[in-house]
Amino acid sequence: MSRKTSSPAAGKSRRTGRRSPAAAAALIAVGLLFTGGAYAAVSATTANAQPAPAAVSQSNVEEGKKLFQANCATCHGLNAQGSPDGPSLIGVGAASVDFQVGTGRMPMQGHGPQAQKKPVQFTQDQINQLAVYVGSTGPGPSIPDAKYLDADGDAANGAELFRINCAMCHNVAGAGGALTEGKFAPSLVGVTPAHIYEAMITGPQNMPVFNDMNISPEGKRDIITALKYQEKVGNPGGIGLGSLGPVAEGLFIWIFGLGAVVALTVWITAKSN
């Protein structure tokens, strides 16, 4: 389907001053095309904020503790020891906090199959203070070093690691996928390198942990490189239809491909004015 396909049909009915059935179909097709194009354009834009790891100073720990007690303690306990409503955070590490709070998953909005990504509730400084505080409660994964987040590693190695360790849930193009009982692996498009890295080392929610013995920090850097390369290159063949594979392609050919062709057959067999 394309503008090319339909416009002559539409143009013709304008010329003859009579609305043919093809014109309406063509109009709808063009409209949907633009909507789809705009959607693709919007979803291709990415945000790339890098967190700066906060220094582990006593003041930061204090500030973080205050923030924690005001915003997180209801579920996770006054000293992060956990409660019936939320797990203990002792030993989850600063990386976990930066991921959960930095992507807006925490504080959790309500109970559901899993915590959803949503607008971030804190400034990066506050998140850093929270992370430092939780990190101080017990040893755990810390916020990754910036040298692993530059997306300048070996894309080929990263792509292979990604296919073997990640693609079954997140889809080869990082478009996300379904899990059991309403849970899902989120899309990785537009996720910051730091958050990708932190997710791997902390294993948020149902995601398994990929510790540094499993995938080395360099391997994680390569994975980030491959994902960011894919984002940068985009879809060489045109609009990517959400990278959802044959289902999207099949729906497209039935609705738009065959739709356009049928609209044209109506025009071809309609009696000329």
């Binding site: 296919r163 079954m168 849930c169 889809n171 594979g245 044959p246 289902v247 729906l251």
Partner: peptide, 12 residues
């Protein structure tokens, strides 16, 4: 070994 989420055949 690997597989992608959303592994489907062509529509037909």
């Amino acid at each position: 070994s690997p597989v992608s989420a959303g592994t489907q055949p062509d529509w037909y």
